[in-house]
Computed example of a mutant assay.
Amino acid sequence: MNGHELLRILYGLFLGIFLIIAGVLTFTSKGEPGIGFRIGYTYLSERARRKANRVSGIGIVLTGVAFIVLSPFLPMPWLMAVIVLGLGVTVLLAYLVAKREYELEELSEEAPEKPGRRIEPPSVRKHITLQLMFAGVSFALILTGEVPRDPGIILVASIQLFLLALTVLVSRPLVFQLAPKFKGEMAFGFARAMTVVSAMIALQLAVVALSPKASPLLVVLMLLVSLGAVFYAAFVSLTSAYEEGYY
């Protein structure tokens, strides 16, 4: 086992444990501020909140376990893909469960009062433009051969397009307009978080292009940068959700 593999395993262990703890907190959440899966449906329905937290908690824990188990065998780009895929599927399933439980409760009881005004979607054009630029840099490095055209590298660059699509989706009010006083704070915070992650991916590919044979110190530095970007993105997303009223 060389130094790079050991660092990758330690990184996987650290981030995996963080995800497991986050999943357990989500699963056992009883409505504490800033904890749990909170969208409009879960705000209006305790039943939807409880079921969605169970689904998302289990999904986050399984993602953390998979990250730890696979870290000795997969390179970092594929590990990042595991996290994106695991959390993406978890969010989708939790959303569908919350929507279904809310609709079932609405059929059995008098529907809660809905906002009477039309809510305009917030403008996140600046973040969309930045993400397009970062994705453009990444794909330019791949197309020009500055970085290897490895399936893992291409997959990591493609994640930027996935983050861009999520940013556009969350900027639409959809169920988020069910917040008590919709201000668009959650959409702005999420857009900023996704932009940070997209910038981190572009930076990593640029480092690969400039230093094909990176020193162990540079590898450690990039791992710390990526970890810091992930934590910052999570922090911004949670605080913006809290400011929006999802607590």
Rank of each mutant, 00 (worst) to 15 (best):
residue 3 G to Q: 12
residue 4 H to S: 05
residue 5 E to Y: 00
residue 6 L to E: 05
residue 8 R to C: 02
residue 9 I to K: 03
residue 10 L to W: 09
residue 17 I to W: 03
residue 17 I to H: 00
residue 20 I to D: 02
residue 25 L to I: 05
residue 27 F to H: 10
residue 28 T to V: 14
residue 31 G to E: 12
residue 33 P to Q: 12
residue 33 P to Y: 11
residue 34 G to E: 04
residue 35 I to W: 05
residue 36 G to S: 04
residue 37 F to Q: 02
residue 39 I to T: 08
residue 39 I to G: 04
residue 40 G to D: 06
residue 42 T to H: 06
residue 44 L to W: 11
residue 44 L to N: 04
residue 46 E to L: 14
residue 48 A to H: 09
residue 50 R to W: 09
residue 52 A to C: 12
residue 52 A to H: 08
residue 52 A to Q: 10
residue 53 N to A: 10
residue 53 N to G: 07
residue 54 R to D: 03
residue 55 V to R: 13
residue 55 V to G: 05
residue 55 V to W: 10
residue 57 G to A: 05
residue 62 L to M: 12
residue 63 T to I: 04
residue 65 V to M: 08
residue 68 I to A: 02
residue 69 V to S: 01
residue 71 S to H: 06
residue 71 S to W: 04
residue 72 P to G: 06
residue 73 F to T: 07
residue 73 F to K: 06
residue 74 L to A: 07
residue 74 L to V: 08
residue 76 M to F: 10
residue 79 L to E: 00
residue 85 L to W: 02
residue 92 L to V: 15
residue 93 L to K: 10
residue 95 Y to K: 00
residue 97 V to Y: 04
residue 99 K to L: 03
residue 99 K to S: 05
residue 103 E to D: 10
residue 104 L to N: 09
residue 104 L to K: 14
residue 105 E to I: 00
residue 106 E to L: 14
residue 107 L to S: 15
residue 107 L to K: 15
residue 109 E to L: 14
residue 109 E to W: 13
residue 112 P to L: 15
residue 114 K to Q: 15
residue 115 P to C: 11
residue 116 G to H: 12
residue 117 R to P: 00
residue 117 R to W: 08
residue 117 R to F: 07
residue 117 R to V: 14
residue 118 R to E: 12
residue 120 E to M: 10
residue 122 P to D: 03
residue 123 S to T: 11
residue 123 S to C: 07
residue 124 V to K: 08
residue 124 V to Q: 07
residue 126 K to E: 02
residue 126 K to Y: 01
residue 127 H to D: 09
residue 132 L to W: 13
residue 134 F to M: 14
residue 135 A to V: 13
residue 136 G to S: 13
residue 139 F to Q: 06
residue 143 L to S: 11
residue 144 T to G: 01
residue 145 G to R: 05
residue 147 V to G: 03
residue 149 R to S: 14
residue 151 P to T: 11
residue 153 I to K: 00
residue 155 L to G: 05
residue 156 V to M: 15
residue 156 V to K: 01
residue 157 A to F: 02
residue 159 I to W: 00
residue 163 L to S: 11
residue 163 L to Y: 13
residue 165 A to R: 11
residue 167 T to P: 07
residue 172 R to D: 06
residue 179 A to S: 15
residue 179 A to V: 03
residue 179 A to I: 03
residue 180 P to C: 04
residue 180 P to F: 03
residue 182 F to Q: 05
residue 182 F to L: 01
residue 183 K to R: 15
residue 184 G to D: 09
residue 189 G to M: 05
residue 192 R to L: 15
residue 193 A to G: 15
residue 193 A to L: 12
residue 198 S to F: 01
residue 209 A to Q: 09
residue 210 L to S: 10
residue 212 P to D: 07
residue 212 P to T: 02
residue 213 K to H: 08
residue 215 S to W: 00
residue 216 P to C: 01
residue 217 L to M: 06
residue 217 L to N: 07
residue 218 L to P: 00
residue 218 L to I: 04
residue 219 V to A: 01
residue 219 V to R: 00
residue 220 V to R: 00
residue 222 M to N: 11
residue 224 L to A: 14
residue 226 S to A: 15
residue 227 L to A: 08
residue 229 A to S: 14
residue 230 V to E: 04
residue 231 F to G: 01
residue 232 Y to T: 13
residue 235 F to S: 09
residue 235 F to R: 12
residue 240 S to G: 03
residue 241 A to I: 01
residue 246 Y to H: 05
residue 246 Y to P: 01
residue 247 Y to V: 10
